[in-house]
Simulated assay, not measured.
Amino acid sequence: MKCKDLQQVVFRKYEDGDGPTKIFRDLSGSLGLATIKRWCKMIRDTGSIQLSKPPGGPRFARTSKTIQKVKHKLNQKKMASVRSLAKDYSISKSSSHRILKEDMKLYPYKMRIEPKLTEEHKNKRKKFVNWVGHNFRKEDTMRILFSDEKIFDLDGMYNSQNQRIWAVSRDEADEKGGIKVKQKFPQKVMVWLGVCSKGVTPLVIFDSGTVDHAEYIQKVLPVALKYGNKTFGKHWTFQQDGAKRHIHHLTQTWCQDNFPSFIDKDHWPPNSPDLNPLDYCIWDEFAQCVNWKKVTSKATLIDELKCAVEKIRQDVVLQSCSSWTARLSRVLKNGGGYLKK
């Protein structure tokens, strides 16, 4: 029964001499007793039921017209917040949120950062995939030693979106560790690591935080060579990306003279961290193995990095290397584009 109809029923019954309790019983719970008493008082005082307009926006904000306006807005503008939509269409934030999630079946996604790939880059990526297909069997790809460098700092790693503190107030959350203190210029440590289907190499640490081709040749390449020969014997391949210290002519010459095989600067495609197991898997695993609570200085950071490399799970390493050829196939299907996952 509509509200207007209920008002007429209450008005008629009250005029006939029925009290609020009897009206409530006759309506079988269609209206609350308190509401009926309030309406009866209105009839007694004014001779009619006069309901004031409810405060705030209209009761039914999620109309088809408003939903169409929101759709049009999103088609014109790639990003729009719940707050801005609510302000633009004079609706509450909760109504705006329900329109997006319940009516339009949309989900909020955080903006991701990925390397910019030109058509030339995409063509080189496709060319690399074809080159691997013609020169490597599946078992050969399992004998590739991938390598990379990464910088860690004293602030550690955390995810502001996923790491939540449940508390009754902001102050309590802060007391439970809800504040992440970041330094303006935190001390940093650069490390090098190699990974293959059999495991990971010893960790090489650069105390200065940077490394040039000379230090790379002196400290890194002998470690890679020793590990590769010990693990695979005479048949394996070394990989490195297009960093300047890697493509330096002296580095390339050293690799050519010492490694059984290596992917030279003319074959590894530019802007392709999504093709290196370290970038798309192992570095995250490594960071999760670090006990960041113990990191209070550069020395403790180095100690924790050394401990963490021993905790990297072998099944994660094997899976990341085993999936490499499948990722290459996806590059071709994606027209040379960047792999999202």
Rank of each mutant, 00 (worst) to 15 (best):
A326Y: 11
S52V: 10
S28T: 10
K188T: 11
K230W: 05
L328P: 01
K176E: 09
E15H: 00
C40P: 02
I312L: 05
R25K: 15
D155K: 09
V168C: 12
K105H: 14
K138L: 11
K184N: 10
V290G: 03
K341Y: 14
K4V: 11
W236T: 10
T300P: 02
I43F: 00
E139H: 12
A86Q: 12
V316I: 14
M1S: 13
G17A: 10
K22W: 01
L328W: 03
R38M: 00
T237M: 06
P273F: 12
R327K: 07
D207C: 11
F11A: 10
G233C: 09
V129W: 05
K198R: 15
S272D: 08
V200D: 07
K198A: 14
L145R: 01
K124C: 04
W254E: 09
L305P: 02
L6N: 07
I263E: 09
Q240K: 10
S322I: 13
S297R: 01
T325L: 11
K4T: 08
L6M: 13
D5H: 04
D315V: 11
K333M: 11
Y89V: 08
T66Y: 02
H134K: 15
I36W: 00
Q187E: 15
K71D: 07
V129E: 05
N123M: 14
M190H: 06
N271A: 15
F238W: 05
F146T: 07
K87C: 12
W192Q: 09
K4P: 01
G336P: 03
T63D: 09
V290Q: 03
K234P: 09
K2I: 12
R313I: 10
Q50Y: 03
S261T: 15
M79S: 15
K298R: 13
W131I: 05
F11P: 00
G337K: 09
I99N: 09
Q76F: 11
K71N: 09
D264L: 02
L339T: 05
V181D: 09
L154K: 09
K73G: 08
D279W: 12
C307M: 14
L154M: 10
I49D: 00
W131Y: 04
V168M: 12
T21C: 12
M42K: 03
C40M: 02
Q68V: 08
L117V: 09
P55W: 07
D303F: 01
Y14N: 01
Q319W: 05
K93W: 05
H121P: 01
D212H: 08
Q252S: 15
W254M: 09
G337L: 07
P58H: 14
P115K: 07
A243Y: 02
Q163A: 11
I43K: 00
T296H: 09
H97V: 08
L117P: 02
L203T: 07
V9Q: 00
A80T: 14
G335H: 05
D284K: 13
L221Y: 03
D16K: 01
R112G: 07
K188R: 13
N75R: 14
Q50M: 06
P277I: 04
S208I: 06
L225R: 01
K78N: 14
S84I: 13
S297F: 07
M157P: 01
H248L: 12
D266V: 13
R245Y: 15
I144L: 06
K41Q: 04
Q76W: 05
Q50V: 11
A326S: 13
V220L: 04
R164D: 05
